[in-house]
Design a protein around this nucleic acid. Structure first.
Length: 577
DNA sequence: GCCGTTTTCGGCCCGACTGTTTTCAGTCG
């Protein structure tokens, strides 16, 4: 049983407990544990088998949950969960996805009306049976009815890159509202999460009505979900929710901090405040006086808010309550920026499945100011992409030799290849050909359903090939579309470390592979990370900044990243002087 | 269910908005 499966079981148990009306802190304990396990780069099963390690050392795992993990790993069983599943049909959990319907109301519906599916619930609403329940009314019934459709389409989170475009449109639209002094976008967007579930907008304005009225005029506006004195929520045509808050200047920093989150980071912050005899909310930081009254002491800027707690300002990308509080003690690293990158070492041309010619890609890279690029078309195994065989590859490299003369002084072009790791193991082109290149990337494209052992062996084998420099998109996941393949990243990292090789952070917004947690783990092990566009056309080179956002979430600095260095410096890292 | 220099019990973030209520519970972020 792998970590994702264990985490899913804990999450499910938390859902069921919540539905049952269990103590909310107990529910949270299961969710916290699920999160810890989900983000772990080491397998729980490995820890269980290693007498030198203890599960209880993990954040949020105590004696009880450690035992449950052990039983899960050893027997695959989770008696408590199975018992609850017998009591509560799984289908009722779908009700919790209806906006405005939480565990309490859902439980009443289930118990009083015996309803367990969305279809039955719809029927009951149409029969006006729901409004008769205590605590329910016609409005609630209507809300449920219109929410059933939303629940059926399930949760949809959009790529950060797409959220970024929406944010630009919203910013431009809201800026023109009268009396709006400031606009900021908070939430998971500001933290740079790879996907964004809703958009949080913060404004400072003379009166709240101006920005709220303006938001209702947004071209993609569909309906108002709620509107009060300081807060408004709307739904857009594509069902994306936008939350707008209007706050006064003295609370602006506190509100920005609060609504940026994450929830876990804020829970931690509030705990720290409490220990200092302070209270923190979206209006500011307050000192609790002897008589119980509260005195405002900070709130105008985020720096003031954190400062009041004797903390430095936290880069938003780090606010996940992972280890940023530990980092704060010694000072935050200077996180990487897109300007730090001096080259792009993964891109394709029309020789395979790219859209632009070799020279067009070079010209576009010069325009970006890069010192060097690597041309890395596919190898022959990727037949659908017209992958290169040895002959065509060597011809391309000869062409690159010529172009290096032509562009001398403007950019250096590296002779590269994205070489497939074959299903049975081994590289797609002969070693003696690979050895003639400057920069060989190894990738898994086929056989993604193989066992963990097989895939791990393939990647480790590739990294041991002296010509291979880096493994691209090491887990193969496509966000919202395809799960990562089974791979023992620990073993991959170990092998990369021993052989002075690199791992990639593929900057394509659908990939972002390795993810933030894994990038951080690679950094901790001292493995350099290459951030590359994997561009298949000129525009495709622009995705680099999405990779940078992910890299910042991983806490990466300039020195952790391969292509912030000169090509000479990179060769040194590879031990090729 | 976790956690601990207030340490084995008693906390665990906190407020806006809505609907169904006459003072509050549920939901959400």
């Amino acid at each position: 049983m792998n970590n994702a499966q264990i985490a899913a079981k804990f999450e499910l148990l938390a859902d069921l407990l919540e539905f049952q009306g269990a103590n909310s802190f107990r529910v949270r304990a299961y969710r916290n544990a699920a999160r810890t396990i989900q983000e772990l780069s080491q397998q729980i099963s490995d820890i269980v088998e290693d007498p030198g390690q203890k599960l209880t050392d993990l954040e949020g795992i105590g004696k009880d949950l450690a035992k449950k993990c052990e039983v899960l790993v050893e027997t695959g069983k989770f008696p408590q969960l199975e018992e609850l599943q017998k009591q509560i049909p799984q289908s009722v959990l779908a009700m919790l996805r209806i906006p405005g319907l939480g565990p309490k109301k859902a439980a009443v519906i289930y118990k009083e009306l015996g309803i367990a599916t969305l279809e039955d619930l719809k029927q009951a609403c149409e029969d006006e049976r729901v409004r008769a329940l205590k605590g329910f009314g016609a409005k609630t019934e209507q809300m449920i009815l219109s929410g059933i459709e939303l629940a059926a389409t399930a949760e949809q989170r959009i790529y950060w890159a797409k959220a970024d475009q929406l944010v630009s449109r919203l910013r431009e639209h809201l800026q023109s509202a009268p009396g709006v002094e400031k606009i900021d976008f908070a939430g998971s967007y500001r933290r740079g999460k790879e996907t964004v579930g809703d958009i949080d907008v913060l404004t400072m304005a003379d009166s709240p009505s101006a920005p709220m009225d303006r938001l209702a005029e947004f071209p993609e506006f569909q309906e108002v979900i709620a509107r009060g004195d300081t807060k408004m929520s709307i739904r857009l045509e594509d069902n994306m929710q936008v939350d707008l808050r209007v706050v006064p200047g003295k609370s602006y920093g506190a509100a920005l901090q609060y609504f940026t989150g994450s929830k876990e980071h804020n829970v931690k912050i509030r705990g720290i405040a409490k220990q200092l005899g302070l209270k923190i909310n979206e209006y500011g930081v307050f000192r609790i006086e002897e008589d119980g009254s509260e005195t405002y002491i900070a709130g105008e800027t985020e720096e003031d808010v954190y400062g009041a707690l004797d903390l430095p300002w936290f880069p938003p990308e780090l606010r996940e309550n992972r280890d940023e509080f530990k980092m704060a003690e010694t000072g935050f690293p200077k996180l990487i920026t897109v300007e730090d990158l001096v080259g792009d070492m993964h891109m394709h041309t029309d020789a395979t499945d790219g859209r632009n010619t070799l020279e067009e890609m070079i010209e576009a890279s010069i325009a970006k100011g890069y010192q060097y690029i690597a041309i890395t078309d596919h190898s022959k195994r990727v037949s659908m992409a017209n992958g290169l065989d040895s002959e065509r590859l060597l011809a391309q490299w000869k062409q690159i030799d010529k172009l290096n003369k032509k562009y001398d002084g403007k950019i250096q072009i590296l002779k590269g290849l994205e070489c497939d790791i074959l299903e049975q193991g081994g590289m797609d082109l002969p070693d003696k050909v690979l050895a003639k290149g400057d920069w060989i990337i190894a990738s898994v494209h086929y056989g993604q359903n193989q066992s963990k052992q097989q895939i791990t062996d393939r990647i480790v084998g590739a990294l041991q090939n002296p010509s291979v420099c880096i493994v691209a998109h090491p887990t193969g996941r496509l966000i919202n579309r395809r799960d990562p393949y089974e791979v023992d990243l620990d073993a991959v990292f170990q092998c990369a470390k021993e052989n002075h090789k690199f791992v990639e952070l593929n900057a394509n917004p659908a990939r972002l592979d390795l993810n933030d947690v894994h990038c951080h783990a690679a950094k901790e092990r001292g493995i350099p990370i290459g951030i590359n566009s994997d561009g298949h056309k000129i525009d495709g080179l622009d995705v680099m900044r999405f990779g940078i956002v992910q890299a910042r979430r991983a806490g990466l600095t300039k020195k952790d990243v391969v292509n912030t260095r000169s090509w000479k410096g990179i060769q040194k890292l590879l031990g090729r002087e």
